[in-house]
Design a protein around this nucleic acid. Structure first.
Lengths: 274, 274
DNA sequence: TAGTGGTCTAGACCACGGT
DNA sequence: CCGTGGTCTAGACCACTAC
């Protein structure tokens, strides 16, 4: 049906000067179906294909910084806008990411994340041969946001404890997370070390265990404090995972809102069908 | 901590002529945390805020077509590029979507989708008061793509049956899906009506039932046949959900690759913690 | 202070969709 | 055929980062 039209030439010729960047055949990326054809051959997609190939072959290795946009524009004999379009597309694809005014970088392998597991973040990261770090940004009592009143079944104008944290993998902040806790269940939690696993803390200090949870996964755009914490520009794509957790007595314990850099994670869930 | 700085003025004043578009205060969108601040007030974010508000109040109702980019540029006294930037950001956020060369439209409510449930697509859509439709694009025997050989535990150069379908909600194609089936389990399936639920077909005709499955969720960019089927431009953001399904004897039955329009769906999973 | 991306101007031509 | 977005040019100034 769909015909496979790969761009197999090594020389990416530009309109005026001609540019040689890629000398290797591309490897197949998991999310690149071999059944999809490349139908366009615009300048834009030549830039994309060239960069994609360099990334696939690790000629551009994970974490490496790309040349400046102006430099790439010169290299490909075009303007910054065209280059930016190409880079945005690769960003959407998750192959590269940007840091606000710092430049563009090749993405690191995605963390495999199972939101149904109560495995601790640090453990999960270590199990994947990566290094984790957690930073507490704030802990304060707030009036429950109205959508949480509904979601958590609270009475209106309830108070909640809000804990904000940033989590890093291999030195890069990839996750901004807000926890909303029912204060009556967690007296004095402000005095605890909140950079550790909250799940462990709940259990050790308060005898509360997750029994079941419900989570929503929703790709969206980042704004506000989450954006600056993640070094992202306003409106960059992220993956929002919100969870409601129930304890062994089926009471709502807390609610998380995780904002993941969308190139940094792959959700994997094992489940029984029902 | 973060200060709430809402843009509460009704009059969006542009640099030369001044434009009044919005007259209503915005409602809070679920994914818009009230704890995040709007830190910029560029021309771009004024466009975004104005459109966001109009959408939140359904002044711009779901499914409605936005004015042409050139028209918006005139309206906001700016250029098409600036308008496109704003529209792209709203697209990333999932509030609007585009159809290739047709224009920009306000997104419909997201379908709530639980990949762990074996509920049939048509049932699930109907349960949410929407209308579903399925179109079979192709059914053919192919050599197993190499990443599936690994994922499904096949011997190299195995053959698989590949079924490609498009699924619509309320007349809009929102899902492109490929199924890869082990041919030895499904003799003669090509002669069946493949526009119905495959799950039901497996059970009725072949006595096979899903018992468990593993799925991966990964935001990425769309290319190739999936893009044209979904009326998307190359590189638009989508949500890729790939699943491996096991039968009651714990054998791999099939593997799905779903490509969802990223504004059309919200993944919701209920799970026991472990 | 130099370098970077963020934002923006003011146009242009083309390809495809719908009539 | 016209209207639409898709792509592209050739610059500009600003804000922030890193040194």
């Amino acid at each position: 049906m769909a015909v496979l039209r790969r761009f197999d030439g090594n020389i990416i010729s530009c309109r005026h000067r001609g540019v040689i960047l890629s000398r290797h055949a591309g490897a197949t990326h998991f999310w690149t179906s071999p059944h999809t054809a490349l139908t366009t051959s615009s300048l834009n997609s030549r830039i994309i294909d060239t960069l994609r190939r360099q990334i696939a072959t690790a000629t551009l290795a994970p974490g490496h910084k790309l040349p400046a946009e102006r430099e790439l524009a010169t290299l490909f004999d075009t303007t910054r806008i065209t280059v930016k379009d190409a880079l945005s597309m690769l960003e959407t694809e998750g192959l590269i990411y940007r840091e606000e005014r710092r430049g563009w970088f090749v993405s690191l392998p995605r963390l495999e994340y199972n939101p149904a597991s109560r495995s601790h973040f640090h453990e999960m990261v270590r199990a994947q041969q990566r290094q984790a770090q957690t930073q507490v940004l704030s802990c304060e009592t707030v009036v429950a946001p109205c959508e949480l009143v509904t979601e958590m079944g609270l009475s209106p104008l309830s108070k909640l404890i809000r804990i904000c944290r940033a989590r890093c993998i291999d030195g890069r902040t990839v996750l901004y997370v807000e926890h909303f806790l029912r204060p009556e269940l967690f007296p004095g939690i402000e005095q605890q070390d909140l950079s550790q696993s909250l799940t462990a803390l709940y259990q050790r200090e308060y005898g509360l265990e997750y029994s079941r949870s419900r989570f929503d996964i929703c790709p969206t755009a980042v704004r506000g404090e989450a954006a600056s914490t993640l070094n992202l520009s306003q409106g960059s794509p992220v993956l929002a995972v919100s969870r409601i957790n129930y304890d062994q007595f089926d009471r709502v314990i807390d609610c998380d809102r995780e904002i993941w850099r969308h190139d940094a994670v792959r959700i994997r869930v094992e489940s029984l069908s029902f």
